[in-house]
Amino acid sequence: MKKVNAVIACLLVVIMLTGCAGVEMNMQVNEDGTCRFAVTYCYQQSLYENMKQEKPADFEQGSKEINGKTYLTFRRELTFSSIEEMKNALENNTAYINALKNGSQAPEQYKEDQYSAPFENVTLTKDTFIGKLRQTNLSSTTQTKQTGNGVTDISSMVNGASGNISMAEYYKMYGVVMDISISLPQPIRESNGQIEGNQAKWTVDNMPADEKLIAVSSDQSIFAGDKEAPVIRGVKNNTATRNPVVVHISDNVCVKDVQINGKSYFVSDFQINKQGKFQIKAIDTNGNSSMVKFTIDRWGPNIYGVKNKKVYRKKVKLSFFDNCGIKYIKVNGKKQKARKKLVIRKKGKNTVIACDKAGNQSKVVFTIK
């Protein structure tokens, strides 16, 4: 079975509009240094049947009730003799595939073009886990798409100043399951997930925006001393544009939450390509925040008081309006400062162009005799 037991990136792409699916990953570090990694893929019955796949080898089949829905489950558990061995499997594609092949009934099914390690940039010790989910594109389910520049376009999920729905709300609506946990030998003191004794857990309700998972059981704090706010790149505050906006958000520790017009999204690199007013707020785990506001506008300014290609026998009084504001006006090729009203007395043919702050233009041509 090829795509069924791939990592999250492959799994979530096949969800689309066909049904409910998800993944559970459980990691455990023991006191003696041995480790365990278990992955469970969950499929609603109709989705599994539509995929027309055979039961994957090496995976234990079962079923479970999640949020009132029954899912078919396929579970595989890998064991490791050392922390370093599991760390390598979590972040290195070759090591991960070799771990899947180890003891497999069908090792030939594990190919590098279909399987990849679930994390990147992993730190793993007895008291610390840090790992960024590898190309999960959580937002690639149902209502989003990937752009040519490799970021997620979330335009269909944001509706200008109102009408947004959060990523978590989308996932719950479509029955997407996301459950990741790490257990350390000692009680966890600090995490950007939910702490339950020795375990930290991440679900669709608390997934960090940059998908960087952190859990620490030592006394040394990662979050407490952090006073740096996240950095938002790709758009300037209080600007207007007619082009798609590609946003990149980063933080020295972790981008915990990205809010777009007040709703949370599991994205730190994304594109918005629709008209509207947008407010992006990025918050790290220690509460430091940054914010930008911008407008995407593709309509030219309104020009009142004159009609295109009409002839007038007296002076013409024009007025201008645009939601983004007027940047400049051109009268017969000469640029003028922005203004709300303008009187033209020149006889003959006149051309007036108004440009807004997003770069959109409107033009009228008329004659005064």
Rank of each mutant, 00 (worst) to 15 (best):
residue 291 M to K: 10
residue 139 S to D: 11
residue 319 S to I: 06
residue 318 L to V: 00
residue 1 M to C: 12
residue 308 N to Y: 02
residue 312 Y to E: 11
residue 136 T to S: 10
residue 72 L to F: 13
residue 55 K to R: 15
residue 36 R to T: 12
residue 129 F to S: 03
residue 316 V to R: 00
residue 132 K to S: 09
residue 183 S to G: 06
residue 167 M to I: 05
residue 140 S to R: 14
residue 359 G to H: 11
residue 144 T to F: 12
residue 136 T to N: 12
residue 39 V to S: 04
residue 232 I to V: 04
residue 211 E to A: 10
residue 167 M to P: 11
residue 284 D to M: 09
residue 216 V to W: 03
residue 224 A to S: 08
residue 59 F to I: 13
residue 8 I to L: 12
residue 263 K to A: 05
residue 137 N to H: 13
residue 126 K to F: 12
residue 295 T to I: 01
residue 178 M to N: 11
residue 160 G to K: 01
residue 56 P to K: 08
residue 315 K to M: 13
residue 175 G to I: 00
residue 42 C to A: 13
residue 277 K to Q: 06
residue 336 Q to A: 13
residue 153 D to P: 13
residue 14 V to M: 14
residue 158 V to S: 02
residue 287 G to D: 09
residue 261 N to R: 00
residue 138 L to W: 15
residue 166 S to E: 05
residue 121 N to V: 10
residue 27 M to I: 01
residue 15 I to T: 13
residue 87 K to N: 01
residue 190 E to S: 02
residue 22 G to R: 04
residue 197 G to M: 05
residue 196 E to A: 12
residue 127 D to A: 09
residue 54 E to P: 14
residue 188 I to C: 04
residue 318 L to W: 03
residue 167 M to K: 08
residue 333 G to P: 11
residue 225 G to Q: 11
residue 118 P to S: 00
residue 307 K to E: 08
residue 308 N to E: 06
residue 15 I to C: 14
residue 122 V to S: 02
residue 249 I to E: 05
residue 178 M to V: 05
residue 51 M to Y: 10
residue 63 S to Q: 07
residue 282 A to S: 10
residue 160 G to Y: 05
residue 362 S to I: 02
residue 51 M to I: 15
residue 126 K to V: 12
residue 230 P to D: 08
residue 258 V to G: 09
residue 110 Y to E: 03
residue 329 I to Y: 05
residue 177 V to P: 07
residue 89 A to C: 01
residue 150 G to P: 09
residue 221 S to N: 10
residue 224 A to W: 14
residue 22 G to E: 03
residue 47 L to M: 02
residue 361 Q to Y: 08
residue 295 T to S: 10
residue 98 N to M: 12
residue 188 I to P: 10
residue 247 V to H: 00
residue 204 V to G: 05
residue 149 N to W: 06
residue 249 I to Q: 03
residue 198 N to Y: 07
residue 124 L to H: 05
residue 279 Q to I: 00
